[in-house]
Amino acid sequence: MKSPIGKAARIGTVAGLAALAATETAEAAAVLSTSISMVDLSTAADNGALVLDIDGDGTNDFSITGEYYGPNPALSFNGASTSAWMVSDGFAASTVGEGYELANGSLPNGASYVSTTILFDPFAGVSYGEFYAGVRFFRDGELHFGWLKFDMPTDGTLNGATLVSAGWESEAYAPSTVGAVPEASALFISAVFGGLAAGRRRR
């Protein structure tokens, strides 16, 4: 005979997990891009343009274009043809700190969203090393905010230039926290629910 206490405990556990899952879902709206990870930018100046899909929906969201001014390499963000923008001081990308809340009305002093801006141009003094840049783009006709993490060389070359990672806010028009990724606990809860469902089917 099955214990009613054990059944009640299981019900309580499921209810508690459901409440926790709802909380985690609300807090884990940040999405780590699976299509942008450790992208080598060293050949971008040779190949002209590198198109990128930050949200993995099969649509190009923006590109990174490269060119040489004599022997000097340069990289630029370009979202003009796809209605995407990057936070910029009007000339080069404005660096944003990890944890910064990106939104339409929340930008570093003197910065704005522009469709084209310089990412790397040591000859012009634009060589930040490792930094975050903020972006916004459209997904299914709705505006989303996100971030890109770069690691640029500081020796005047493109050797080792890398787009390290990217993330975006899955809730349209909601602010994006720079550097934020989904909580691991949310993934754990999903696994627990999957195990409970499998257990029920086996009975």
Rank of each mutant, 00 (worst) to 15 (best):
M1W: 12
M1K: 06
S3F: 00
G6S: 07
A8G: 01
A8N: 01
A8Q: 10
A9Q: 11
R10Q: 15
I11F: 11
T13A: 12
V14D: 11
A15Q: 07
A19D: 08
A19Y: 06
L20Q: 07
A21G: 09
A22M: 06
E24L: 11
E27L: 15
V31N: 03
L32K: 11
S33M: 04
M38A: 14
M38T: 12
V39W: 00
D40L: 07
L41C: 05
L41S: 03
S42Y: 05
S42G: 08
G48R: 10
L50K: 15
D53Y: 04
G58Q: 14
T59K: 10
F62V: 05
S63P: 00
G66L: 07
Y68S: 13
Y68M: 14
Y68R: 11
Y69A: 14
G70L: 12
P71A: 13
P71R: 12
P71I: 11
N72E: 14
S76F: 10
F77T: 07
F77M: 01
N78E: 11
N78M: 14
G79I: 02
A80C: 08
S83Q: 11
V87D: 00
V87W: 01
D89N: 14
T95S: 02
G99H: 05
Y100W: 04
L102C: 05
A103W: 02
G105A: 09
G105E: 13
L107F: 09
N109V: 08
A111R: 03
S112G: 11
V114N: 06
S115A: 13
T116H: 02
T116K: 09
I118D: 04
L119Y: 10
L119R: 08
F120R: 00
D121T: 01
P122T: 12
A124G: 05
S127W: 12
G129K: 02
F131T: 00
Y132S: 02
Y132A: 06
A133Y: 01
V135G: 03
R136Q: 15
D140C: 00
D140H: 02
G141D: 06
L143Q: 14
L143W: 12
H144T: 07
G146F: 09
K149H: 10
D151K: 13
D151R: 10
D151V: 00
M152T: 01
P153F: 09
P153I: 01
T154Q: 15
G156C: 08
G156K: 01
T157P: 13
T157N: 13
T157D: 11
N159A: 13
G160Y: 04
L163P: 05
S165G: 04
G167Q: 06
W168M: 03
W168G: 04
E169H: 06
S170W: 04
S170Q: 12
S170C: 08
E171N: 13
E171Y: 09
A172I: 01
A172K: 05
Y173I: 04
V178E: 05
V178M: 05
A180H: 02
P182G: 06
A184W: 00
A184P: 00
S185D: 11
A186P: 03
L187C: 05
G195I: 10
L196W: 11
A197G: 03
A198R: 06
G199I: 00
R200D: 12
R201H: 05
R202N: 14
R203V: 07
R203S: 15
